[in-house]
Design a protein around this nucleic acid. Structure first.
Lengths: 203, 203
DNA sequence: TCAGGATTTGAAGACCCATTCAGTAGTTGT
DNA sequence: ACAACTACTGAATGGGTCTTCAAATCCTGA
């Protein structure tokens, strides 16, 4: 059944992702197999080799990460709220956030694996563009007064998200989701001349 | 000779550092040995096991990185120049900067190796403190007008350096040393209300 | 020059890994 | 019920790894 075949593939991708989080970008096929409760041979039945599997699994995480961010601001219209929510969505939930752990692992391997370097570069650029749209829209409606090019602000915000992601994953004692969000918001306030008030949590 | 013994150790640390840059944080003993032009056994004669060697080698890079930054501003008195020079010194010279490549590799492994997480966290905090001193001194002398806490500014600047280090090491097409420096300076200008003019290169 | 320590090699032992593949179980459509 | 196909196992292959250790080599000081 071609349906079950796709399900199987996705189960293996999930296993590969968890394996990367635990063992790093240089996971062994054996580790992925263990994570899936199968043997190495079974994995190689679905994928030509371990690299193909890993590249596909890692790409999927990046897509999911980006899609989650877009979904987070779907339906929001107020530019200030959009920006605040987007910034929060770019940081790991907590120090155990698996997607961010994986992205960090790939970032550390990027200089050795051009594939990952290219994928992460593309992800970065997409996120910058995402911010530019929010910033330009807010500026056009007069809510934001940009003190720098939207490209500059976008690049810096995404850079800050990345860096605080690394800090959080490394379990910095004082920089958690809350603090990191506020640090980035502090920059965003300077750059947009907008108070970007903390939102009240939804019930 | 106890003198040659120390030289030997340092040669091996250097080999380990190059090996980490090429093979990542999970280098194999064999790779270090090859890099040093020796056999695995020879390395184990000087170090009890691979991990001891790697931790010492990686720690040495962090110390060197931090010391280089301090040395870069030694003798500078103008706060604006100090800040500009310090920011430039926190970024990789180019995409092939070996020290930054190593730091990125460790950052990617931090969630798996608490030792590296702790070391990188300490390095981050030291760099933040370094910026705080520069910022506070500039503010005290009236050259800077800080629009945020010096801790906030310091944290954000170091975070930006880290992130652009990762981007450069991943060979982003448009973000090189020049562009990254300017992006961070753009933030620093907002935060200090100081023009931070580009310096003329020394002859 | 040479004895003795420091350094290094090379091989052995025990283990792990990716990949291939013949064969086995399980499922499906008819 | 059975042929045909899918999914998977387990073993074999060829390779690589860490560690230990006896033996060889290199130095150095006398």
């Amino acid at each position: 059944m071609s349906n079950g075949r796709q399900q199987r593939r996705e189960k293996l991708l999930k296993a590969a992702q968890r394996a990367v989080v635990i063992h790093g970008a240089d996971v062994r096929l054996k580790d992925v197999a263990d994570m899936a409760g199968l043997t190495s041979g079974a994995i190689l039945y679905h994928f030509p080799d371990v690299q193909s599997l890993l590249v596909e699994a890692n790409r999927a995480v990046m897509e999911r990460f980006y899609d989650n961010r877009l979904r987070a601001i779907q339906g929001l219209s107020c530019p200030g709220e959009k920006l605040t929510v987007t910034i929060a969505s770019g940081l790991p939930r907590d120090s155990d956030d698996e997607d961010v752990k994986l992205l960090c692992a790939l970032g550390g391997a990027a200089s050795r694996y051009p594939v990952y370097a290219a994928m992460l570069t593309a992800l970065y650029d997409r996120q910058v563009a995402m911010y530019q749209i929010i910033l330009e829209a807010g500026a056009a409606s007069g809510v934001f007064t940009l003190s720098q090019l939207s490209e500059t602000i976008g690049r810096n915000i995404v850079a800050l998200e990345d860096a605080y992601g690394y800090r959080m994953v490394a379990r910095h004692a004082t920089i958690g989701h809350e603090v990191a969000t506020e640090l980035i918001l502090d920059y965003a306030r300077l750059a947009t001349s907008h108070p970007l008030d903390k939102l009240v949590a939804l019930a």
